[in-house]
Design a protein around this nucleic acid. Structure first.
Length: 475
RNA sequence: GCCCUGAUCGUCUAAUCGGUUAGGACGCCACUCUUUCAAGGUGGAGACGCGGGAUCGUAACCCGCUCAGGGUACCA
């Protein structure tokens, strides 16, 4: 068979790296989608290349504006910006496939002219080269036409050479006139001068189709890198993570007030790791260390606990000015603070909480007693502490001791309580848990002494008296 | 069924050319912190899927098996 060749103009962008993130806005943004975007972005930033954002909206039935908005919003939240694409344009646009019909027609014509495409049942198929035969196919439960093609070698940075053979012609233009994914994906990668394709492993079997297409156009395929899938947390079942799994959606992290840099850090660690043992990394450190070659081959399981830990590490490192906004946002949502809240007090409380609490979403429950006299009481702790016969005595003793203190700072408090304990031949421990419970209703929290100092004498004493009253209902 | 990919502690992973008490992190447990505590500190348990080979020797190389993941659409 004589191979007809034709000329394709490939855009020239010097020898710069051009990667692309090509999502289709069909639903909420999945963590795996975000990771693909992130790795492409990291690679572009690392190499000084360009990241192209291309919206693959050829499936009109499933695309929605809401999904697109959520996608762009999620990328921005994560700090992933694009050099060409929606909202900013670029020289090889438009960047929505739904607006690139003319380009696809042009490319399709080249295939038609070269005898590499044909119409059947109203759709247009790409024609593979090789001897044709029909065979019963077990999966399709029917006789199908197959082609004895030459195998295609996919050069993959992560996996090495992968050999695969396409054996059936495939649709490039659907019978409703819309071009299909494989076709537009390749055409756009050519037309946009894409040099590296970094995508999920689920695309690996598609890639032989894509390489066939590149070959038909007489264009050298880009460098491929197929990264591992993100799998469900073992407790959630088997298989790849689905949109319904907890922690699967970027929107969820936004709503739960996760730190975007922590989300970025965590998802970067799924299938990739820095060569040293440092795991908590800033965005800049990620860019500095990232390399496609260091990607893992095997699927990575999502781990909610680790996500939470990374988030905590980033929260702890935040300067208080940056800690304040998300914290206040979480507290306002819970109705604990508003514009009238004393800023100095708020800051003091949050400084106490920052080193202890690992998520902003838990902050309201953790710190409610600082802002309101109505807060949850842990009944287990209550039972444990108050069942002791001497609980009432200890409270009765500590109230006047606190009232008579000439100051109410942590140091004075400790000295005062210690003196009281000494005078009763008790350990300071006899008072601490009761004090904590009296003012907060729980058994844990920020360091006790600074916490009492922050709450102030009036509140502390009032709450102790309230507890005392509840202990002696008969009196 | 067929095709492709993969396989180190429960989980994420590290280990330049094959020679390590197989390292770190999350989680777990214990201890500890001027005797609160979900933070901090210290320590502990915990892995090379199985079977063959090649090699003086391997987690690292080859083969088979098993298991896992993906694909097999006029979805992307």
């Amino acid at each position: 068979m004589i191979r007809r060749t034709f000329h394709i103009t490939v855009p020239r962008f010097m020898s710069q790296v051009r990667v692309r993130f090509a999502p289709s806005p069909t639903g909420s943004t999945h963590i795996g989608t975000a990771r693909t975007a992130l790795f492409n972005w990291l690679y572009a930033r690392k190499t000084g290349g360009k990241l192209v954002l291309r919206i693959e909206d050829t499936d009109k039935e499933r695309n929605t504006d809401a999904a697109l908005e959520e996608l762009l919003n999620g990328l921005k939240w994560l700090g992933i910006n694009w050099d060409e694409g929606p909202e900013i344009g670029g020289e090889v646009g438009p960047y929505f496939q739904s607006q690139r019909g003319d380009i696809y027609k042009e490319y399709l014509q080249k295939l038609l002219d070269a005898g590499r495409a044909y119409e059947k049942d109203g759709a247009i198929f790409f024609k593979l080269e090789g001897e044709r035969y029909t065979e019963y196919d077990d999966y399709h439960k029917a006789e199908v036409e197959k082609v004895r093609t030459q195998p295609v070698v996919i050069e993959d940075v992560i996996r090495g050479n992968v050999t695969r053979r396409e054996e059936r012609d495939f649709v490039i233009v659907r019978s409703n006139g819309d071009p299909s994914f494989h076709f537009v994906n390749v055409v756009d990668d050519i037309a946009m001068g894409i040099t590296h394709v970094l995508r999920g492993e689920d695309h690996l079997p598609n890639t032989s189709k894509h390489v066939e297409l590149f070959n038909a156009f007489g264009v050298k395929p880009p460098v491929y890198a197929h990264m591992p899938m993100i799998l469900k947390d073992p407790s959630q079942g088997k298989g790849k993570m689905s949109k319904r799994d907890r922690g699967a959606l970027i929107e969820e992290y936004q709503q739960r007030d996760f730190l975007p840099e922590a989300v970025v850090n965590f998802i970067a660690l799924l299938g990739w790791s820095p060569k040293d043992d440092q795991e908590v990394l800033t965005i800049d450190e990620l860019i500095e260390r990232f390399d496609i070659k260091d990607l893992q081959k095997a699927g990575a399981r999502f781990d909610e606990k680790k996500m939470s830990h990374i988030n905590f590490e980033h929260m702890k490192r935040l300067p208080i000015e940056r800690y304040l906004p998300p914290a206040v946002s979480a507290l306002s949502k819970a109705g604990l603070v508003d514009d009238s809240t004393d800023q100095a007090y708020l800051k003091q409380v949050l400084e106490l909480c920052q080193q202890k609490i690992n998520s902003f979403e838990d902050l309201p429950a953790f710190s409610a007693y600082f802002f309101s006299d109505t807060y949850a009481v842990d009944e287990k702790v209550e039972k444990k502490l108050l069942k002791r016969a001497d609980a009432a005595d200890r409270i009765q003793e500590v109230i006047p001791a606190l009232e008579s203190l000439d100051a109410f700072d942590a140091v004075t408090l400790e000295r005062g309580i210690q003196e009281l304990a000494d005078s009763k031949e008790l350990k300071i421990f006899a008072y601490f848990p009761l004090l904590r419970f009296a003012v907060s209703g729980v058994g844990g929290g920020p360091d006790l002494l600074p916490m009492l100092e922050t709450l102030g004498r009036d509140t502390v004493v009032a709450r102790l008296k309230k507890l005392q009253a509840s202990l002696s209902p008969s009196a």
